[in-house]
C-alpha cells in the first residue's frame, strides 16, 4: 500500500469518503438533456457571488458616508477591483435569469410532480431569496439609482392596506432611507439571505440526491 493510499484510508475511516462518493457521485441517473444543467449553473453562480461578495466586503463600508466612496475606491484604485465588482454585478443579473430559467424548466418538464413537490417548494423559496438578494444588493452602492429605486421599491409595501406604512418603516428602519436602511439591507444581503440560501440549497440537494433527478418525460408519462 502506497503512502498516498494509506493517507486516503486514514481520512476515509474517519470521514467516510467512499460512502459520500458512492451516494453522491457514483449514482445512476436517467439520461437527461442540456436543460438539466440550469440547477448546477444556479449553484455555481451562487458560489461565485459568494466568493466575490466576501472579497467586496474587504473594502466596502456600509454607511451613507462611505459606501459610495468605498465602491469608487474598489473600482478605481484597488487592483482588479473592477473585475471582482464586475463579476458580482453581472453575476447578480445572470443568477436571477438562470434561477428563473431553472424554475421554468422544472415546470415545463413536470419535474415538480410526485415525489418532488417539496423540492419545488424549497426551489420557490430559493427563487424568492435570489430576488431578495437582488433587491437588497441594489441599494448598497448608495448611488442615485440605488437610492431612488429603493425609495420606490420600499414604498410599494406602503400600499398594503392598514399595515403598509408600518411595514414600510420596518423595511427602511424609519420613515426615510438612511444609514439604518443601508445597515439592515447590508445585513440581510450578507448574512440573513445567504444563510437561508445555503440552508435551502442543502435541503434541495438532499432531496435531489435522495429522490434522483427527474427524467425527461416521455409520451407515456
Amino acid at each position: 500500500m502506497s503512502t498516498w493510499q494509506k493517507l486516503l484510508n486514514w481520512f476515509d475511516e474517519r470521514l467516510g469518503l467512499t460512502t459520500i462518493y458512492s451516494t453522491v457521485l457514483d449514482r445512476k441517473v436517467p439520461k437527461v438533456n442540456w436543460w438539466f444543467t440550469l440547477g448546477s449553473a444556479s449553484m455555481i453562480l451562487f458560489l461565485l457571488q459568494g466568493v466575490t461578495g466576501v472579497m467586496l466586503t474587504v473594502y466596502y463600508v456600509p454607511s451613507p458616508d462611505h459606501a459610495y466612496d468605498s465602491i469608487n475606491y474598489i473600482m478605481n484604485e484597488v487592483a482588479f477591483g473592477w473585475l471582482i465588482r464586475g463579476i458580482h454585478h453581472w453575476g447578480a443579473s445572470l443568477m436571477v435569469l438562470v434561477v428563473f430559467a431553472h424554475m421554468l424548466r422544472t415546470f415545463y418538464f413536470g419535474a415538480f410532480k410526485y415525489p418532488r413537490e417539496l423540492t419545488w417548494i424549497t426551489g420557490v423559496f430559493l427563487l424568492l431569496c435570489t430576488v431578495g438578494m437582488g433587491f437588497t444588493g441594489y441599494l448598497l452602492p448608495w448611488n442615485q439609482r440605488a437610492f431612488w429605486a429603493t425609495t420606490v421599491g420600499t414604498s410599494i409595501a406602503g400600499a398594503v392596506p392598514f399595515v403598509g406604512e408600518f411595514i414600510n418603516e420596518v423595511l427602511r428602519g424609519g420613515t426615510d432611507l438612511s444609514a439604518l436602511t443601508l445597515a439592515r439591507f447590508f445585513s440581510v444581503h450578507i448574512w440573513w439571505l445567504p444563510a437561508a440560501i445555503i440552508a435551502l440549497i442543502g435541503v434541495h440537494m438532499y432531496m435531489i440526491i435522495r429522490l434522483g433527478i427527474s427524467s425527461v418525460p416521455t409520451k407515456e408519462d
Binding site: M75, W82, G86, G91, W142, L177
Partner: peptide, 22 residues
Amino acid sequence: IFILLVGLATFLGVASEPKADP
C-alpha cells in the same frame, strides 16, 4: 457562464452613477 461573466466585467464593466442625493 464564468467566461461570460468575466467578459461582461471586462468589456462592459459597471456604469458609474452619481452619489445618492436625497
